[in-house]
Every structure is written in structure tokens, then in C-alpha cells.
Design a protein around this nucleic acid. Sequence first.
DNA 1: CTGAGGTTTTGAATCATTCTAAACACCCAC
DNA 2: GTGGGTGTTTAGAATGATTCAAAACCTCAG
Lengths: 149, 149
Amino acid sequence: MIQNLSEHQREDLLEALAQGGQKVTPQREVVYAVLLAKRDHPTVDEVFQRARESMPGLSLATVYNCLETFVGCGLVRQVNHERESTRYCPNLAPHAHFRDESTGRVHDIELPAHVLSTLRSILPNGFETDSIEISFHGHTKNSRTHTSN
Amino acid sequence: MIQNLSEHQREDLLEALAQGGQKVTPQREVVYAVLLAKRDHPTVDEVFQRARESMPGLSLATVYNCLETFVGCGLVRQVNHERESTRYCPNLAPHAHFRDESTGRVHDIELPAHVLSTLRSILPNGFETDSIEISFHGHTKNSRTHTSN
DNA sequence: CTGAGGTTTTGAATCATTCTAAACACCCAC
DNA sequence: GTGGGTGTTTAGAATGATTCAAAACCTCAG
Ligand SMILES: [Mn+2]
Ligand SMILES: [Mn+2]
Ligand SMILES: [Zn+2]
Ligand SMILES: [Zn+2]
């Protein structure tokens, strides 16, 4: 069962939505809470399953709608890996993703500022970036129990 | 109309396929030739259209099959951008991709070895990478006519 | 010849995502 | 309070890239 949003989190949600003239709704609260509760980069369907436990009437279409809205207002990032279902991530700090091919899990990898600028530096003149996506793909050696949240 | 493969290119194809007990076929030659002819990261459908000009009976499924085979034997890379159709790239040198959101074009960005190692260095212990994908997304300022091939 | 194995072809199936249209909810003006 | 207007949610249909299944094809070794 999903925890309610903290005052602070609700504030973030409100603020992010407000700048596009959009409102906080019970559905959006639940979906956002699901993302914050377990930062394991769930798919739309996983978000749907988890959210339904708190709000049984919730529809899949609404989960799609909410997530799209969040991405639109910069509250959440989309994470794509090859041709798999899109996953969602509420971590706003600059980071890369590591996809463990044996477990299927996706881990956040912190991205230091100097790495980002090194990356930008490889672009020839005339290329103006608005986003960079970095994804690693591999295995994790044991010891990596890493219970993310 | 697609040029035939050069001796050298045919050799690469033969060799790559051989290591998996697979053979050169007319369809595979045409599909590979299409990729080499215009390195603009075509989608399956674009490859299909272009290949059909040289080989009218060719089927879409075969194009899927050939491309999967090439990816399997490391002759070609798959390029994914967000949720769009998969694109294919015969450039085997380490490189990143830049997706120009106004034209939809995908450009290769050379990836110096030191950048690659900087990237690898951000992985915590226990993470073993077998591939890294880097994609930029943005616009290109004019002057960038850059007729790739 | 003949059979085995890999390849190609067609058409159907899958499945994540998007679209459509109708029901809702909330807010403001009257 | 009543009637709209506007954004939101819902169920279900539609889409579209990709995958699958099965039959026809080829090639080559025996
Ligand atoms: Mn691998
Ligand atoms: Mn953009
Ligand atoms: Zn993340
Ligand atoms: Zn490329």
C-alpha cells in the first residue's frame, strides 16, 4: 500500500503542475506517490498495478495520462532501454542508467558535472543539445544487493 | 538503385556471417548494401523501400530477419531513440548519436577513447558493462548541411 | 536423385501505446 | 443553486512496429 505524499512532495507536485495550468488530482497524487515509493523505474503497467492497490477504480489510460503530464512538466523522466516498455524515474538529479541484463533491474548512476561537460565537448560546432541520455547495459557482480529504496 | 557490394564489403559480410554458420544470400547482400549506401540510420521500413528497388520480391519479414542477423553477428548496430522505430547503423567505430529534433535526422558523433573511459569510471564497483549507449537530442544550427555520405 | 538445414515468404498474432468519445469534477458567473 | 466551461478520467477501439507460425524454397552433402 502506497504512502501518501509528504507536504513537501505534494508541494513539488502542485508547483510543477501549476506552471502548465494543471491541477493536482487524486489520481495524479497516487501515481506520483507510487513513483516516489519505490524508485525501481517501473513500467506503466507496474505503476498501474501498484497504484490500483490504493485506488481500485484507477484506469490504465489515466496512468498513461498522468505519467505523460509529469514528463511534460519535468517532474519525471522517461527511461527507454532498447525496445522494452518505457520506464519512469522521479530522480531529477543528472544521472545515467544501468540496465542489469540478468535481473532486468535498472540502476541510477550518478553523473558528475565534469563528465557531462566532457560529453558535451565531443559535439562538433553547430550541435545544440537539449538532453543527453546515457545507458549502460551489463551485469552486476554479486555483493550488489543494493536494495534501492 | 543500390550499388553492389565491393569485394571488401562482401568479404566483411561473409566473415561476419560465417562465424555463426550462416551464409551470404542475395537478400542479405542487398540489405547490407542498402545500409552502406546511405548511412542515414534508416528504419526497417526505409531499408525495405530502398532494397525493394533492387530486389522487388523482397519481403519485409526478410528485412527484419537480415537486420537481426547482422546485429547478432556484430556487423550493424541498432539505434533507438525514445519510442521511435528502431534505426540501423553500419558504423562500427565507437560513436554516439545525435538526434536532430527538427529534421528527425540522426548524426554519428565520434567518441574518443578518453571519453569512453571517463564514462566507465563513473560506475560503482560491481557493475560490469558490456555496452554503452549515448544519445544526444537537440537541434542543429544552420551551416550544418552535412550530407552524410 | 534425396534429405537436412538454413532461409524466405505470407499472413496472422502480439502488445505497448495512442486515440476517441462519453461521463465526470470543479469552478465561476449569473 | 444553476448552467457552462474547462480540464480530467474512463472504457474501449485503433494503431503500428515487431514477432511468430507455417509452408515453400534453396543448396549442398551423401
Ligand atoms: Mn549483453
Ligand atoms: Mn527538445
Ligand atoms: Zn533514474
Ligand atoms: Zn551511427
